[in-house]
Design a binder for these strands. Structure first.
Ligand SMILES: [Zn+2]
Ligand SMILES: [Zn+2]
Ligand SMILES: [Zn+2]
Ligand SMILES: [Zn+2]
Lengths: 169, 169
DNA sequence: AAAGGTATGTTATTATATAACACTATCTTT
DNA sequence: AAAGATAGTGTTATATAATAACATACCTTT
């Protein structure tokens, strides 16, 4: 398990990265995790995960549904998608972005980790990050209030590196 | 303007506090802020704000709608509520809790401030908190990615002090 | 093959939010 | 006071997101 404090490669933020590598890594990791957990990464679930991983932009359930419908002959209804999403969330393979009502692939799905995102409102990319410092401070604040944390969601909305640059020009 | 790092009175977390004081303070502050900003706190907007302030539990737009309908003779449709909510959000008098699709009164609506909540999944109370440390670390992380923050949402879901105690018994 | 559990299909419904246009109240200018 | 502009609200319809309930298919074990 990698140290939870290590920042995720910022190269994801850049638009120039080997995204095929992101996809293949994600799919392989997913297979392994499901196998380890004794659960089945069925065709549908695999298909949904792959669609989500087509980019680093969170996808809404209904967008996902349409993409599924295009790929297959069978009709696809909301529960089909939502059940797959629920499964992937449970296995920690994707995250839900509350600000967007959308879902994005997890970039480090091994072990427990926080759920912190920077979301670019220009290009739509969501960058997952996690730092021990923030996590420490949050635990600290919670302790002050005697609050027991069960889940957390940190979402920063703004402009990513590339889009900040574009705005300046 | 109070120092933004000072923690909000934890007494809100306790169920035993003078909530009438919360309400009257909130309504007076709202009047002043609207007056300062040169905008109108109309009857409807005042009514919605007061309903939101009936507790520290975030309220959904449709719950709010029903409460409005009970209070008045006229029919109340979604846009009525959403426009009032939009106004109150713009003036910084309320916050939207993304995790719940619900709205809660702001406990320190003066000046810019963060948007950090601890939400008790047992009693439904949302406690607004803000600390300079977290804010500093967040800016730090964003800087690492050259990310420009425009808005942020930190939501911790779990058990508040009172409800943690109850669970232990 | 039968049984039990897991996964998916199907239909209907609930929950949340916005678009578009009409009308009214309030403010500004004359 | 009257006219015009702006802001606020009413009204209808619709978009978007999520779940409930039940039927069917699939997979594993006996
Ligand atoms: Zn990638
Ligand atoms: Zn993750
Ligand atoms: Zn109170
Ligand atoms: Zn606030």
């Amino acid at each position: 398990m990698p140290p939870s404090g290590s920042p995720i490669s910022p190269s994801i933020a850049s638009r120039l990265h080997d995204h095929n590598h992101c996809i293949s890594t994600a799919m392989e990791t997913a297979q392994r995790i499901c196998s380890d957990n004794g659960v089945r990464l069925t065709q549908l679930r695999e298909q949904v995960l792959r669609l989500i991983w087509q980019s680093h932009r969170p996808l809404g359930a209904y967008a996902l549904m349409e993409m599924l419908a295009e790929q297959s002959t069978r009709r696809v209804a909301p529960p089909t998608v939502y059940r797959a999403l629920e499964f992937l969330l449970e296995q920690g393979l994707i995250h839900r972005i509350n600000t967007l009502n959308a879902f994005v692939g997890c970039t480090h799905p091994q072990g427990d980790h926080d759920n912190n995102f920077m979301i670019c409102e220009e290009c739509g990319v969501a960058i997952e990050f996690c730092t021990e410092k923030i996590q420490h401070d949050i635990k600290d604040s919670a302790a002050q209030f005697n609050f027991t944390i069960k889940a957390q969601s940190i979402e920063l909305v703004g402009l990513c590196q590339a889009c900040t640059g574009n705005k300046d020009e």
